[in-house]
Amino acid sequence: MAMNRKEIQHGSWILMKGTIRFLFMVINNLVAIPSYVLYLIVLQPLKLLNSKLFWHVEGIMFKWLLAMVSSWGWTAGYTVVEWGDDVKAITEDETMVLVNHQATGDVCTLMMCLQDKGTVVCHMMWLMEYVFKFTNFGVVSLIHGDFFIRQFCQTEKNTVEKQKGLQWVIDITIAYHKAKPIDIQTWIIGYREPTITHVHYRIYPIKDVPMESEALTRWLYQRFVEKDELLAHFYETGAFPPPKGQTTATSRAMTLDPLWLFLIQLMGFLSGYMWYNVLQYMYNGLGL
């Protein structure tokens, strides 16, 4: 069937917008990630003198990098509504997160959700497939101290068992509009219409989590059974069920400050420009 004029115009607009967004993302990575690495190289003396301050500074820059990724989805109209327990009260405590990972866009969604949760995003550690070590963000994850794993389920269970200072487990369930997950390509290019992703939180005190291996395995399986029940309810009614003992479920629209996102991006591009000039000066100074 031949496309009409309106469809051609819409397709052309999506193609042009997607190309611009993709080029911006590439440039964004080329300036922000090397800048992060070079700042930390220069700050190595600080690491020797005051390790705590060094990792505090690193955490702030790590949060800024994740904010840049969040901005890609935010500017495409991909927003988040949060349900369930309010996790802001425990974000400064040592916590482990479980999530129903469905697509590559889940990671970007979590990066967005964590931006307004205090300093947790500065200190959090990610567990990811080993192959991600070889992506553009791999060097950042290596420096930050993230974990690359080959057997996720067993590693997840071992992490709960060995984490002595753990205080909470947050069970996160992500639900997408019409059960269509957003992948990283959509997040970057923005070819899907603006949509709301729904994120449900449930908090478990660590004292309620069994530490014995078999009991812990059953407990983890049960969380994913509950996730399926939550998702079934959401896709049937358009809302997550209310917490036990309550009759209504409340939701909270998660917001990001556009000015703050702009300043973060501006900082990244100015840093990239500065480091380009510094490296060029050093190159010329060496007579190479």
Rank of each mutant, 00 (worst) to 15 (best):
Y176R: 04
F148A: 00
I149F: 04
V121S: 05
K164F: 12
K180Q: 10
T119E: 11
Q115I: 02
M111A: 09
Q102I: 06
P181F: 01
I184R: 07
C108H: 08
H144P: 00
I172Q: 03
S141H: 10
Q185H: 11
T119A: 14
Q154H: 13
A179L: 11
D171M: 02
Q167M: 09
I172L: 05
T159Y: 12
A103V: 00
V139Y: 08
V120P: 04
E161C: 10
C153A: 13
H101P: 01
C122S: 08
T186E: 14
N136I: 14
Q102T: 08
T109G: 06
F148G: 03
C113E: 09
I143C: 02
V120H: 03
T155I: 11
E129V: 11
N158L: 11
V120F: 06
L110M: 07
I184S: 09
M124Q: 05
M112P: 02
K133P: 07
K178G: 07
G138R: 00
Q115G: 01
F148M: 03
R150N: 10
D116S: 11
I174T: 05
I174S: 03
I182A: 00
Q102G: 08
M112W: 12
T159H: 12
K178N: 13
W126L: 11
C113Y: 04
D171N: 09
L142A: 13
T173F: 03
F134R: 13
G118D: 04
S141P: 03
W126T: 09
T104R: 09
A175K: 00
M124G: 00
Q102N: 07
G165Y: 02
L142H: 12
E129N: 15
S141T: 08
I172K: 01
T159A: 14
K133L: 13
W126Q: 08
H101N: 04
D183G: 09
Q154E: 15
M124K: 04
F152T: 06
L142F: 13
V99H: 04
H144L: 05
N136S: 13
G145H: 03
D116N: 10
Q185E: 12
H177Q: 12
W126N: 10
E161T: 14
I143D: 02
T186L: 06
T159S: 14
N158G: 09
C108N: 12
T159L: 15
K117L: 10
K162Y: 12
T104P: 02
Q167H: 09
N136V: 15
M128H: 01
Q115P: 03
V139H: 07
K133Q: 14
G145K: 03
T155E: 12
A103I: 02
V107G: 11
V139M: 10
L166G: 01
I172M: 02
N136E: 15
Q163V: 13
C122Y: 00
T104A: 08
L110E: 04
D171W: 05
H123V: 07
G118I: 02
M125Y: 12
K117E: 08
Y176H: 00
D171P: 00
I184H: 06
Y130K: 15
K157M: 15
Q151N: 13
Q102S: 08
F132L: 12
Y176L: 05
Q163N: 13
E156N: 15
